[in-house]
Amino acid sequence: MSLDQHPHVGLFITCLADLFRPSVGFAALKLLRDAGCRVDVPRAQTCCGQPAYNAGDRRDTAAIARQVIDAFEPFDYVVAPSGSCAGMIAKHYPDLFDEKTREHARAQALAAKTHELVQFLADVINVEALDVKFDKTVTYHDSCTGLRELGIRDQPRRLLASVAGLKLAEMEESETCCGFGGMFCVKYADISDHIVAGKTDFVRQTGAEVLLAGDLGCLMNMAGKMQRQGSGPEVRHVAEVLAGMTDGPAIGEADG
């Protein structure tokens, strides 16, 4: 691994950012490049395999994991703007292969160099402050996998604190699940709805103008719910704010 000042980072774009919100990917690119990384986006990526993994389909999951390992092996680091996808690679890929096999060793090696974006910036590259401005009150939701599998809690708050003009208004139970849960939100739609409705109450109670989090699944769930309810702050991925790329419409909002 070339531990020079310009580590070579493979950006794992995530299937949701790729399809729904490419601006998250461009924000990640900017943050990584500003931090001195050389960044590439392998074409041979689709998804981390979590939908198959959580549906009990190990064979397809392993096939997808092999594809990701092949595509990202050459990089110094793998970085994803999602705790959920980064957690899948960093915590679950090795379990997909029999121990003592070469595949297992490769999965472990990839796992060891895979990070969620904000954690990577704060803990690996040691970014302490960002030279951007965002004159708004925000509230931050701790996505489950990032929080509990990867220990992401202080890092986004630390970096957000360095954004000029930004005020953080913490919500009650920021660490409670938003009810997304991948396929859960469509399979058990009414339970998921009940959970997200509780969550959006807490979000509104803060009076914040913007809701931030590090995972598009949760963000789309909460944004979609508040838009259906007809009230609530705008919703953005934390990377957009950290990169100073907040000119475009927020999640699910009309153009211009």
């Binding site: 490419p22 739609a189 998921s192 709805d193 997200v196 944004a223 979609g224 475009g248 999640i251 909002e253």
Partner: peptide, 27 residues
Amino acid sequence: GRLARLALARGWTRFRDLPAPQGRTFQ
């Protein structure tokens, strides 16, 4: 910027709007 109903994602749109893609995919 969003969809209130989508036949293929009824479980989702029964209770929430679905944000529309911003434009072309990242890739």
